[in-house]
Design a protein around this nucleic acid. Sequence first.
DNA 1: TTGTAAGCGTTATCAA
DNA 2: TTGATAACGCTTACAA
Lengths: 332, 332
Amino acid sequence: MNVTPESRVKRATIEDVAKLAGVSRQTVSRAVNDKAEIDAETKKRVLDAARSLNYRPSRFARGLIRQDTTTLGLIISDIGNPFFPELASGVLRAAQARDWQVVLYDTGEDPEREVLALSTLAAQADVGAGFLTSPEVFAHAERLGVPFAVLDPGWDAGAAPGVGIDVAGGVRLAVRHLAAAGHRRIGMVDGAADPRDKRRTSFLAVARELGLEVGEDDVQSAPRSVEGGAEAIGVLRARKPEITAVFAYNDILAVGAVRGLKAAGVRVPEDFAVVGFDGLPLGELVEPPITSVYVDIRRMGELAVAAAAELLAGRTPEPVVLSPELRVRGSA
Amino acid sequence: MNVTPESRVKRATIEDVAKLAGVSRQTVSRAVNDKAEIDAETKKRVLDAARSLNYRPSRFARGLIRQDTTTLGLIISDIGNPFFPELASGVLRAAQARDWQVVLYDTGEDPEREVLALSTLAAQADVGAGFLTSPEVFAHAERLGVPFAVLDPGWDAGAAPGVGIDVAGGVRLAVRHLAAAGHRRIGMVDGAADPRDKRRTSFLAVARELGLEVGEDDVQSAPRSVEGGAEAIGVLRARKPEITAVFAYNDILAVGAVRGLKAAGVRVPEDFAVVGFDGLPLGELVEPPITSVYVDIRRMGELAVAAAAELLAGRTPEPVVLSPELRVRGSA
DNA sequence: TTGTAAGCGTTATCAA
DNA sequence: TTGATAACGCTTACAA
């Protein structure tokens, strides 16, 4: 895996410092850890020696004895998607409060890299949290024996511990809003790789529930990027000219859809309405601002850390499901 | 520091597995590490035992012997600012290529938290990289003995290793562009805490160099947020109505400035021009898109990792300075 | 106030 | 193919 084994200067050990200062290892430890039972002068001499050797205690040796450092491995799909910094922000805050370390893994939404990241995480962290694209990948985590808090799986998490989102509820808010505005033909710009994805299935179910006419070809898949959204909306409208509104898988795609529409000379929301999902701050900066199903992502990050702590304690975390709310802006 | 010492289930050790499987620790090690010299059946028995105990080797014990895991501590100011995810993206990519772990610290631009993060980093990582608000904080890193790659310091980095940005050059591009468009009174929306900050001092120097009339009161400080930028532009225009263009400390503030102007009924760029710094993708999504001094931030992240690797090898990294380029969009 | 001994959990070395 | 022993760098307990 590590293609180029890199040279690395050997770090000074406590032994080196002890020798230089002419004391025992124990005394060095006392000086470095600010213990009381040590002569002021000895301490100074030791610390001078330590500094001159650039001594830093080995985290491995230390960790072996004082079993008090906790590391959380956070798996995200794409740090370029503003959703994830938002999430990381919540995780970092909660982790800092507990004095935990956070190691970050970006998988680029690639299942293979997810599995790889999970393996590394299992070796380097005490507990994991994050987004996994499928139940199969989560099963890998279980096989590895790492406690893992699953976040907002598009798939059915079953009994997997973690933090969920009431996707169906959120989608209902979005579609109802569009229907209430008079839209009868509503499409979707989908960002999920898996066709069983909840946002997609919920969309179809809710639309039918409301008596709207929808089919598979009212859903257009797109890569999860602004460009992806812009392109998808073009494809969708070409295929289904009768559509007057779309529900987008997330705000990035919604922003892209609005961009694509504007570029095509379509007025938003007068001629065409767009609703997103996530409620990212970014959505408020574009013109028109995005109407979106808001989820408290930071909170999700904090809850993820809480769930991880429960797992670490050998307990089963309370299932938590966040309820989204609709935030109406200009785009619909 | 850790206020609530959390309970934690004791993890199974290699000894536990050995006992259960009725073999020696060594044999367990062989099974777990896929060594050749082991009977297939023994291996299966050991692995079964391991799985049933949920055994994962201790990273501390392992790290102590195989000195092959490298952890980079990345210090950022605010993950909510899109600049940092962009940077982290580059760092993660380069780190993954080297099979390094990345631990993240968010300091909220608070010098005290920077010092704290640095201390933790020194204990938990092999090497650090990131943004520090002042030379004093960097001095703390040196005192701790952690190799640290300094990124784009607003202050004079001197001989500190790391990755710089040709700020003066970038600012010159920005101000020249505005001057060429006919603006004679140009202000600045400043996001730096320290008045000695390079973007600020460069702005004043370059403006004077171009024969423009500028003084301290043409510079308006603002918190580094969209709201901060929107408010600052209002304050600045109230104080200096003759100003017709601003250079913003970064794109977030530029976006805020444009927002503030639009809200006040000022047309951008017809009545008032805005240039940002960083060249974030976000700048392209707003209306009008932000003209900005583009910096290859991902590349900066990758170079940071390279610099860190040099430091780890005991070498002095080549000084690197990134040259920004102006990207003209709609705002100026 | 200081030093000696034991042990944290793992792997490398060598012997069986 | 397997096991005993030492070692990794540190801290805690105990002795001097």
